[in-house]
Simulated scan of single mutants.
Amino acid sequence: MSTTAGRKRARVRPAVAAVSAALLSAAGCSSGGEGPGEARGGVPVVEKGKLTTCTHLPYPPFQFERGGKVVGFDVALIDLVAEDLGVQQKILDTPFENFKTGAFLNSGECDLAAAGMTITEERKKNVDFSVPYFDATQAVLASKKSGVRTLAEVKARGLRLGAQAETTGESHAKGRGFDPVAFESSDAVLNGLRTGQVDAVVIDYPVVRGWLKDGANAAAFVLGESIETGEQYGFSVKKGNDRLRAAIDRAIRDARADGTYRKLYEEWIGPLPGAGS
């Protein structure tokens, strides 16, 4: 369970080089493995030699496909966990709603879930979370022609609001009195805005920031208000899987202490806000 100083230094490297995850469909996630095993420190894994991660694609900059590989901030952090455990990360693309219930963890198809997932009391009833690894905010993105910048303006003008289904963005919108158009993925949210199905969307700020790096998006859409909700992301494991949860916590804390976290944050998201974030 320990991490040597030499291994800490070795893991400070470009995240793409660290990624060796295989993208599989949820339908095939139970086939072709060697069966359960045990990683370094007695951590149980559902497939020998692997740390199997359930995620939901795409959700840049946390997890998305690039050049035939799944990469992103979440992927890079879990690669650190896998390295500490002496195994290789394997990624399964699964429906997001399963993360709330822990279905794929309970069925033994995945060891953990990593999907830009907010820690909530409701979700804690079904899964155990790691220490927080990301402080999140929501943001409004609107079409420039709509002329709106805030949720209050969207409501006042009776415009259509979109959000990703089963997310805290959708929950926040409902809490503000909206009945948002629910899209299955972040890509579908953006497409809904592009095609005029909705006039504005509410979704995590880093996702909006990534979208606006594209010139076409920047020309068509405008970043509106930021919404501080006090959300924090965590990785989840099956309830009672204390050894894996402890290994994830240790990797996150080590990464913060040795500078790896800052390096990965700046690579995938941007400048790290505030000292000690």
Rank of each mutant, 00 (worst) to 15 (best):
K100S: 15
E34Q: 14
E231G: 15
G32Q: 09
G210V: 06
T167C: 10
T229P: 02
K155Q: 15
T150K: 04
S2H: 11
V131Y: 06
N217I: 14
Q63T: 10
G270Q: 05
S130M: 03
V140T: 05
Q197M: 07
A219V: 03
D93A: 12
Y133G: 01
F134A: 01
K124A: 14
D258W: 08
S185L: 06
M1K: 04
L272D: 07
A165H: 02
Y233H: 15
P180C: 02
K263C: 10
V207H: 02
L190D: 01
A5S: 08
S146T: 01
I119N: 02
W268P: 08
L85P: 08
L85R: 07
Y233K: 13
A275V: 08
D79P: 03
L272V: 09
V237A: 09
N217E: 14
P58N: 08
A27P: 10
G215K: 13
Y261P: 05
Y59M: 03
L161N: 00
G192R: 00
V148I: 00
D249G: 05
V46W: 00
I252N: 11
E83W: 04
L105C: 09
A255P: 12
A275T: 07
A156S: 12
E170C: 06
A15G: 10
K174L: 01
L223R: 14
N191W: 07
E47M: 05
G68H: 01
D249I: 07
A257R: 09
N217Q: 12
D74N: 14
K69V: 12
S107Q: 15
F178D: 07
D111G: 09
V148L: 07
V140N: 01
L223E: 14
Q138L: 11
D204L: 12
E228V: 15
L244W: 11
D258C: 11
L77R: 07
A152F: 02
A251C: 13
A219W: 06
D128V: 05
A139W: 01
D93V: 15
R11Q: 13
G116K: 11
P61E: 05
